[in-house]
């Protein structure tokens, strides 16, 4: 079967573009595994780790925060505001992210955005604990 064309884009640059076997991404309503030939999907992302399985079986893990994924017949495109390879992610960087999320929570005005910010913060804390 042909590979899945996967692109990871952050506002500053194109981080990854190429053929992979599969991608597991943290959607807002649950993790999704995407293989080639997946039905078209749009989904927002929660902060989490994207697992990219390349052809040949090697695996990349990338931390993403804020953004969304689009699957169409051409492949999978992931737009993330923050994307850091897990190998480069240290306690300091994640602490910074948690701090950002806490500020978001403090800035939130209505209940809905407060709930979202709280959710994001919880996810981040879970990642921080797992590291």
């Amino acid at each position: 079967m042909a590979g899945l064309h996967f692109e990871l884009v952050s506002p500053a640059r194109l981080l990854f573009s190429g053929e992979v076997t599969s991608v597991t991404l943290p959607g807002t309503e649950g993790d999704m595994g995407i293989f080639a030939g997946h039905a078209p999907v749009l989904s927002t992302l929660r902060p989490g780790v994207v697992v990219v399985t390349k052809e040949g079986g090697s695996v990349d893990r990338i931390f993403v925060r804020g953004g969304f994924a689009e699957v169409n017949p051409q492949g999978l495109t992931l737009l993330a505001e923050t994307a850091i390879p897990l190998a480069e992610l240290d306690a300091g960087a994640i602490a910074q992210q948690v701090k950002d999320a806490e500020e978001d929570l403090a800035d939130a005005v209505d209940d809905e955005s407060k709930r979202k910010a709280q959710e994001n913060l919880d996810h981040l804390k879970a990642i921080q604990a797992a590291l």
């Binding site: 959607g27 807002t28 078209p40 999907v41 989904s43 017949p73």
Partner: peptide, 15 residues
């Protein structure tokens, strides 16, 4: 999309 339509998760308005 070759005739298919997007599945949106959560729904389109929320995205």
């Amino acid at each position: 999309l070759g005739g298919a339509i997007y599945d949106a998760e959560p729904d389109e308005g929320e995205i």
